Structure formats: C-alpha cells, structure tokens
Simulated scan of single mutants.
Amino acid sequence: MQGKIPATVITGFLGAGKTTMIRNLLENADGRKIALIINEFGDLGVDGEVLKGCGIDTCSEDDIVELNNGCICCTVADDFIPTMTKLLERENRPDHIVIETSGLALPQPLVAAFNWPGIKTAVTVDGVVTVVDAAAVSEGRFADDHDRLEAQRSADEALDHESPLEELFEDQIRAADMVVLNKADLIDAARLENVRSNVAGQSDRALKIIHATHGRLPVDVLLGLKSATEDQIALRKSHHEMEHESGEEHDHDHDEFESFVAVAGSVSDPAGFVAGLKEVIAGHDVLRLKGFCDVPGKPMRLVVQAVGQRIETYFDRPWRDGEERTTRLVVIGLHDIDQATIAGAIAAAAG
C-alpha cells in the first residue's frame, strides 16, 4: 500500500449521523488534507452544503465533490470512476479521501470499483465504516427481529420475504471493517448492549464495534485502519449478489423510496415549525427530512435534520450575498408518498 492514497468509505442508513461524524472528523483532522466525495439521495445537496459551511482550511469547498445523479452503487462507472480520476490528476493530491454514500447505497459495488485499473495502483480502501443509529435499532425500526418477522408472516400470507430496509441494514454491516453505534447517549447500557449483539450477529466475521455520541470520535479511530478492503470485498457479498449467484431474479433499485424538495416561506417561529414537522412526519410516514430554513432577522441559515420524531436544528453559516433566502427541505419516504399534501403541510407549518 506504500504510496497509495487511503480512502475511507462511510456508509449507514438514512439519518444515522454520517455527515455529523464527517464534520467532526474534518474539525479534528490534525492537518491532513482531506477530499470528500458525497453521494446524496435527493435533489438538494444538503450534506455537501453542511460540510462546505464548516470553514475548515484542510478541506476547502474545492475538496468537496457532490454526486447527486443517483445512488453511487448504481452509477460507479458513470460518476465514481471519473470523479476519482480527476482527484488523482490534481497537482496537489489529498492525504486522505473520505466517501459518504447515500443512506440507500450498497457498499459492495463501490468498494469493488477500487480494483479498477488506474484506481487500484493509486488508492486503497483504508476501511469501510458503517454508522448505525443505535436508538433506532433499539426501537426495532431497522433490526432483524426474526421472532417478530415470523409472527407477521403467520398473520399475513403475502409477507414471504424480508423487507428491503432489513436487507440494506444487513448488507451495510456485512461490508464493514468497523461499525459505529451512534447516538448511544439516547439509550441505556442494557439496550446498547442488545444493539451491539444484534449488529454483531449480522456478520460472519468478528467486527470492530464502537459507540459514539453526536458522531464524535478521535480521528485516529476512524482513519488508519489499513484494511485494504478492496482485496476482501468479494467475500462480503450483499443480498443482491448472493441472489444473483443463486439464479434468483432480483433487481437492485430504489423504487421503494421516493424523494422530493419541499419549498416554503420564511420560518418566523422555529419551535412551532419543528412541532409542525413532527406532525407531517407522523402523518405521512416520512423517513427523513433535511434542509435549510430562512428565519427573519437572523443572518445565518437554520439547518434542519430529522429522523423520525427526532429533529435537530442549528444555525451553521451566514447567508451569502446574492444567495436566495428560502426554506427548502428534502423529503425522503416510501414509494407513493403524497408529495403535494406533504409539501403543503410543510409550507403551512412554516407560517
């Protein structure tokens, strides 16, 4: 691996805290020049904008590349390979590359792409880090509870396979070199240990599993794993790969999910807006909300990050000269969500 640029792939389900963890990493990079490749699900580049607002010298806006053309695992040849090639052609190469996948991505095809000619000789996968929302798994939202699943099967003859969310949860863990149980402060020690056991049971390898609060981890914990994962990823197959090998018909797509951008007016009462968003999320089974809001009288934009009923807001940077002050939120939900009704409810909540 001597001379190769190390790359860390950070994956995890929607809202697990990947972007927050990367922001903490950048703020404590100890002088490393880091390039970021960010793949989002949705048309509004929220994660990239949040990281560009950090103001960190070792990771300028020019070092952040956003891929919004679709899931990176489905567009490796079209998006990822050209992006990596451009990074490697730069006069001042980065010391480390960090790739944040969308919450719906399979890590396996992405890691396998590091074996492509021209990439393998210059870059190695330092490690795949899977971020898990420990509180959500503890609540059973993304856990693989076989007893509950069997009970549902008994009650509903149409339920004869695992849901895509459970398969995705397992595949992201199966690909990992390290799993971070994030939001550990939201559950007690016993529940955290149950989550740890659940996660460990998804892999046939002994996984390094650590926990974190607000994505805060020492940089030397996340970087420097030296796993060379591209040499091992063929042994960490996803459900899609295993079903393909068995001859089963199985397409990897994201038809089960849908996203759109909701635009609203200024938010005069942030607390009331958050309360309104909670009603929207509960009433329409929204998986994820994220974006920026205009608050009159405030020079800075308000960031909104919502996972289920947990909503975080904070001001990140001033609005730039010439930048349109508006409220724009990416809404991610299951297929056939009522976009018009949800957008109307969000606009009404803004006041």
Rank of each mutant, 00 (worst) to 15 (best):
L181H: 12
M242Q: 14
P299Q: 00
S227P: 00
V267C: 06
V263G: 03
T213M: 09
I233E: 09
V286E: 03
A228L: 11
K226G: 09
G272W: 11
L181T: 00
R205I: 08
E249W: 08
V303Q: 05
K226I: 03
M178Q: 10
P270V: 02
A275P: 13
A190M: 05
L277D: 06
Q202V: 01
D188P: 02
R191Y: 10
A189Y: 09
A206E: 15
H211M: 00
K237T: 12
G291H: 05
M300V: 06
L217M: 11
H252G: 02
V295K: 02
G265Y: 09
H250I: 13
V263A: 06
V274T: 04
P218I: 06
S203P: 05
P299W: 05
L287Y: 03
P296S: 06
V303N: 12
E279G: 07
S268P: 00
P218L: 09
E230V: 01
R301F: 05
P296E: 11
L217K: 01
G276Q: 01
H240R: 13
N198D: 14
G247M: 05
V295Y: 09
R205T: 07
A228P: 01
L225P: 00
K290V: 03
N182T: 08
D188S: 06
E241A: 14
R301P: 08
K298Q: 15
C293Y: 06
D231Y: 10
V179I: 02
V280M: 07
A264P: 07
